[in-house]
Amino acid sequence: MFLINCPYCGERDQQEFKAGGEAHIQRPRQPTELSDDEWAEYLFMRKNIKGVQFERWNHAHGCRKWFNMIRDTSNDEIKAIYKMGEKPPAQ
């Protein structure tokens, strides 16, 4: 349990948010040309890092906007929060 600083609403309880998994997974540009292996990589395979991980979160019980987060999964410490479409800040 931790506090999350929503880029639109400010600091709120984590309970208001929904985790959306790994960030920056690009949807394939040419889906019709993808092999089954490439589909599996895109759909299912995850880094699942123990340490600093890039994630998407949604302020589900607030403004309902999506944003990105850099978080250390080994201690739940939030390193940075940035809006969708923005480049991640330098670590």
Partner: peptide, 8 residues
């Protein structure tokens, strides 16, 4: 619902 290794 979030990834974490903290056992909390």
């Amino acid at each position: 619902d979030y990834v974490s290794y903290t056992q909390k």
